[in-house]
Nucleic acid binder design. Structure first.
Lengths: 153, 153
DNA sequence: TCTTTACATTTGTACCTACAAATATCGATA
DNA sequence: TATCGATATTTGTAGGTACAAATGTAAAGA
């Protein structure tokens, strides 16, 4: 479906505007589908993201700063996301003994198990979209997006 | 900045995953910049979107359904967005006399004025990004995004 | 050591979304 | 016309983001 049909526009849309609408809409389609994947596990995509980052630490704890800077949406409120994950016993949270300002967050075995269960479904979700494009088109799209968002000032 | 650097990943990321991260991140960059544009006017991007749709009605009122279906993020809560716009006298809301289930929402002169003031800044925001690409690349990006999100089943 | 500055995180407030249930109205039909 | 299903909107609740102020700790300098 073309973006004009999505927003039911009859007038001609400028290319600069069209591309922005296209990116926003595509993101929302991806997000909705992903939420469906996570729904049965009562996990939000943001919570999933935090768990994924913690697993990437390979046993080492991560403090709030580290989690924050590895998130795709940089402005998430990490404290409150961790709160939710704590309630489900998916992570632990402890004051860092070396620097009492910092908080050490770690994924629990229960969290790791949940992620393993999700792994195939997440991959399936990703392939669902990328299957529409050839390898050539995929890297082209990656390149164009990167070029598009990079402000040269 | 490549997406690997954005999320500070050292391992190799699969192309299907990379492209999804790329789209999500690009959207968030666009959104942040746009919020900056709107900030001085104390308008959220969602509120702006509703106003823009209402102006497109060219004097005719729009009911909730119509607004909803023209929004890019389809799941916004239109009632509550309109509530906020009402408080600022940017729209009016009345029960439709022909069908009392429906609500007629219209942009006020004050709302139209605000949009006119914003127009050049919005266009500037759009160009900011699209200037990075040639016309050729823009239409290619539009095409690839559309192809990417279209699920064939 | 005391003070100041920087750092790391938390918290308050306002706004937004997701989902389901509630409310109200209309239209069709028995 | 009384009822029932469909339509249109609202509302409650939970989770999320944005931004600024507050809190607590560390580090550096007088």
């Amino acid at each position: 479906m073309k973006i004009e049909d999505v927003i039911k526009s009859t007038v001609n849309i400028d290319d600069s505007k069209k591309i922005i609408l296209n990116i926003i809409y595509t993101q929302s389609v991806i997000g909705e589908k992903f939420a469906e994947v996570l729904k049965p596990y009562e996990l939000s995509s943001e919570q999933y993201n935090v768990l994924r980052i913690l697993r990437g630490q390979k046993g080492n704890p991560a403090n709030m700063c580290v989690i924050q800077e590895r998130m795709i949406a940089k402005n998430s409120n990490t404290t409150r996301l961790i709160d939710k994950l704590l309630l489900k016993d998916l992570v632990t949270r402890e004051v860092c003994p070396d620097n009492r300002r910092k908080i050490e967050v770690q994924i629990t075995p229960k969290g790791l198990e949940l992620l393993s269960e999700l792994d195939p479904k997440v991959i399936e979700h990703e392939k669902l979209f990328s299957n529409n494009l050839t390898q050539e088109e995929l890297s082209q799209l990656n390149h164009l997006l990167e070029k598009f968002r990079t402000l040269n000032n």
